[in-house]
Design a protein around this nucleic acid. Structure first.
Length: 412
RNA sequence: GGAGAGGUACCCGAGUGGCCAAAGGGGGCAGACUGUAAAUCUGCUGGCGACGCCUACGGAGGUUCGAAUCCUCCUCUCUCCA
């Protein structure tokens, strides 16, 4: 008999209070969450790092684990071998087994900051390549394919949209594979709940159906709202691309900057989604001042994926850079230059471009001509002004592009 | 396999022989305002040590004084038919 979870909040209530729930397949889920259950969310191992766009399911799994449930992180290594998930416009690059394995390994490592893979409610990390690749086509059609109605599949929102723009057979099969995953996890790991983005609704429901037909069991699905920013854009993208959890791709300082640039209107929502602060605390923080709340969001989010030290450092350096309380700016983006090359002076636009602050020398000319180039806090008058050793302070030259892009050039 | 439509810059999308580094919009960047927010207004938005030169309208050739525009072949996408 399953133990009864007592003395802690129902995971459903927590997820609901925090705005994670867009749809659930069955209202009975809340009661079912009164005792421990295994749930899963899928991740595509298309890169060796997750980005903030993945964070919602990650946080949901973390909440589940904290409430005494067991999360399964499903890495879609098998599905990555064939390509495209539904809903995307372009074919996904097809990855080799080795790439997928490597990616899965580092993704698991990142996730271990959010869920624990050891201990009592240890999370599992599984790769669907393990059961998808040995599948035999004829067997699959006979045992699994027979349970799917094309008519019903076509009615799914995710496919209906694609009917206009075109849908290939692989994409169309995605629902079957994902359903099969759920069935597999249900029978092998007693996993009775799949969570995912709202665009996964059709696939999740299909999986639940398949479990009922094949295994005669009851399972559940829960989807998250699609997160957009108040400005209406997809959350987690910046001009320069995705915001990664991997510090080698997006440094903790940059990560912190991403969060602190959150739109005022999104701060409360994001605090609920991307931190573990109690909802009451979140409300209080919002009430006592949006800017402090935003800094808290940036700090907490950074702390979760990069740890205390990196988060403190990022906050410290951000304060120093923006409010000038003279810190050492250890974590802001930096490059190096030899002192000798400064002896005869370097034109500012070349200096900015070579430092990596501007994409090209032409861009650097533009930036400075528009009055957006600063050296040690002072606006550069002309892009031909020269940078010399006299600009070096404490061993470096501090550059700034526009209001908020700082860069340190260390002179050695 | 057959017929047709199409591939233009980060994206959408105009342009069908010179006035085209290519309209317009979106996005982005910068300035003003401000709070590292939003909204608004303005400017910029291929590269090059630069009044010029180089690269660029799916790819390769060709016609022409001159091609994103015309011709040939290739390639990819979409639609309809089989």
């Amino acid at each position: 008999m399953p133990e009864i979870l007592t003395g802690m909040n129902n995971a459903y209530d927590i997820l609901q209070e925090r705005g994670f729930i867009a749809q659930v397949t069955d209202a009975a889920l809340r009661d079912r969450l009164g005792s421990p259950l295994t749930c899963y969310a899928g991740f595509d191992p298309t890169a060796d790092s997750l980005h903030v766009g993945h964070l919602l399911p990650v946080m949901a799994l973390a909440h589940m684990q904290r409430c005494g449930h067991r999360p399964i992180v499903l890495v879609g290594g098998g599905t990555a071998l064939i390509g495209d998930p539904s809903g995307k416009n372009e074919m996904r690059r097809i990855l080799s087994r080795d790439e997928v394995r490597r990616n899965a390994e580092s993704i698991k490592k990142q996730l271990s900051r959010y869920v624990t893979f050891d201990g009592l409610e240890s999370a599992l990390c599984l790769d669907n390549a393990d059961w998808l690749t040995p599948l035999n086509y004829i067997d699959f059609l006979r045992d699994i394919g027979r349970h799917f109605s094309v008519n019903r599949m076509l009615a799914a929102e995710s496919y209906r949209a694609r009917l206009e723009s075109g849908l290939n057979f692989i994409e169309f099969n995605y629902m079957l594979l994902q359903s099969y995953d759920f069935l597999h996890l249900y029978t092998r790991h007693d996993c009775a709940l799949q969570i995912g983005g709202n665009d996964q609704w059709g696939n999740i429901v299909a999986g639940i159906d398949l479990i009922r037909r094949v295994a005669g069991g009851q399972s559940f699905g829960l989807t998250f709202p699609l997160i957009t920013t108040a400005a209406g854009t997809k959350m987690g993208k910046t001009e320069s691309g995705a915001v990664w959890l991997d510090p080698a791709r997006t440094s903790p300082y940059q990560y912190y900057q991403f969060w602190i640039n959150t739109d005022d209107r999104d701060v409360e929502r994001f605090l609920l989604y991307f931190t573990f602060l109690p909802a009451a605390r979140v409300r209080a923080e919002i009430d006592s001042g949006i800017q402090m709340a935003k800094e808290l969001l940036a700090f907490e989010a950074t702390r979760l994926s990069h740890g205390d030290g990196a988060a403190s450092q990022a906050r410290q350096d951000a304060r120093s850079a923006f409010y000038g309380d003279g810190g050492n700016l250890d974590s802001i983006p930096a490059s190096r230059i030899a002192a000798s090359s400064l002896r005869s002076g370097v034109p500012a636009f070349i200096f900015f471009a070579d430092a990596g602050l501007c994409a090209s020398r032409a861009a650097a000319r533009r930036l400075i001509a528009e009055g957006g180039g600063y050296v040690n806090g002072e606006r550069v008058g002309s892009f031909e002004d020269t940078i010399t050793l006299e600009h070096v302070k404490d061993g470096y030259i501090l550059l700034r592009a526009g209001k908020k892009r700082f860069h340190k050039v260390v002179v050695e």
